[in-house]
């Protein structure tokens, strides 16, 4: 499969801040790639480079072989994009906004505009001024805008931002449909795991401007190790006891009267035996599947320290 998007050793600095540090990945034709990372990871910067809004300080970004900065016009022929917080002309109606952007691509196809407004569920409000739209409605209009001119690649920056649960659900179904029925390649960023989990063939996890993991979702999810949640009668005692078991890492659990135990090997029986021997009541011992959330936290280290720990200081750019 030929790569639609090729990003190679992409580096971008903003003053002293290194926003991207040798980021490399590719998006293959027809796949749905999730671009995952916490706030400030460099997702939007990468997307802005792909859209030709920023030029990289190092490395290259290409779409269908055309450089996104030096050959923007040709690269832009292939994609439709939405950016975080999509902007529209508030004094024009949704339909007129689409006409504006359609005109940049060639003769305006009124039928396509009507069809797109219908696709994103905006037919009823299409002739209202955009300044009266909610964030979710703008997001829908942005998607219609991205689909103008039948692109072969969709680049979406946090497309579910501001959408209500119905909207998110609808978007998921729509994106799936576009990918399977029309063979659209979709590259979308998110910090929401649920979206990515349900939608993507492959994910790239970005953190502090570096790719932490990439590959099929099943590979990333298949992180070695076992994890148990144990409901006990005495948490402090239980922690002390479990820590004596070989290879066990015990922490207070997130639930009341529970502990979490992690290990590289299956030690459920040893742990249970140790607890019972020590006279600690075990109400429940559950093996927990590692969700994407855990992998994400493990990769990005966001959960370290306090739940909402402040982002670490940016690394200084290499000389």
């Amino acid at each position: 499969m030929p790569a639609v998007v090729e990003v190679a050793r992409l580096t971008k600095n903003f003053g002293r801040l290194r926003a991207l540090n040798e980021v490399s990945f590719g998006v293959e034709k027809g796949e749905v790639l999730g671009f995952l990372g916490p706030n400030g990871a460099g997702k939007t910067t990468t997307i802005r480079i792909l859209l030709g809004l920023l030029h990289p300080d190092g490395g290259t970004a290409k779409i269908n072989g055309h450089d996104c900065w030096t050959d923007h016009a040709r690269a832009a022929d292939f994609f439709g994009a939405t950016l975080e917080q999509p902007g529209f002309y508030g004094f024009l109606s949704g339909r007129d906004n689409l006409r504006q952007f359609a005109r940049m691509l060639g003769p305006v196809d009124e039928k396509q505009i009507t069809a797109l407004l219908d696709t994103v569920g905006m037919t009823e409000r299409a002739d209202d001024k955009v300044k009266r739209y909610s964030m979710g409605m703008r997001q829908r209009l942005a998607l219609a805008q991205a689909l103008l001119g039948k692109p072969s690649l969709l680049v979406l920056d946090e497309p579910t931002n501001g959408l209500d649960p119905n909207g998110i659900h609808g978007l998921r179904i729509l994106l799936r449909k576009l990918a399977t029925e029309q063979g659209l390649t979709i590259f979308f960023s998110s910090h929401l795991l649920s979206e990515v989990e349900e939608l993507c063939d492959r994910v790239v996890v970005l953190h502090r401007g570096e790719v932490k993991a990439s590959g099929p979702l099943s590979d990333i999810m298949n992180v070695k190790g076992f994890r148990y949640r144990i409901d006990v009668s005495d948490v402090d005692k239980a922690l002390a006891v479990v820590r004596t078991v070989d290879g066990a890492h015990a922490d207070p659990g997130t639930l009341k009267d529970s502990i979490t135990v992690a290990s590289d090997t299956d030690i459920a029986r040893q742990v249970n035996y140790a607890l019972v021997s020590a006279g600690i009541g075990v109400d429940q011992l559950v093996r927990e599947e590692k969700g994407l959330e855990d992998v994400y936290i493990q990769l990005t280290g966001v959960a370290a320290g306090s739940p909402l720990s402040s982002p670490p200081p940016p690394p200084a750019p290499a000389a």
């Binding site: 802005r48 859209l51 030709g52 809004l53 923007h72 016009a73 040709r74 832009a76 022929d77 994009a81 950016l83 917080q85 999509p86 902007g87 529209f88 002309y89 508030g90 952007f101 940049m104 691509l105 805008q145």
Partner: peptide, 17 residues
């Protein structure tokens, strides 16, 4: 004005140079 309205990014991401 387009920069403030965030329409400039959409404008510049489109094929016209």
């Amino acid at each position: 004005g387009e920069r403030s309205d965030r329409t400039l990014t959409t404008l510049l991401s489109r094929p016209p140079s």
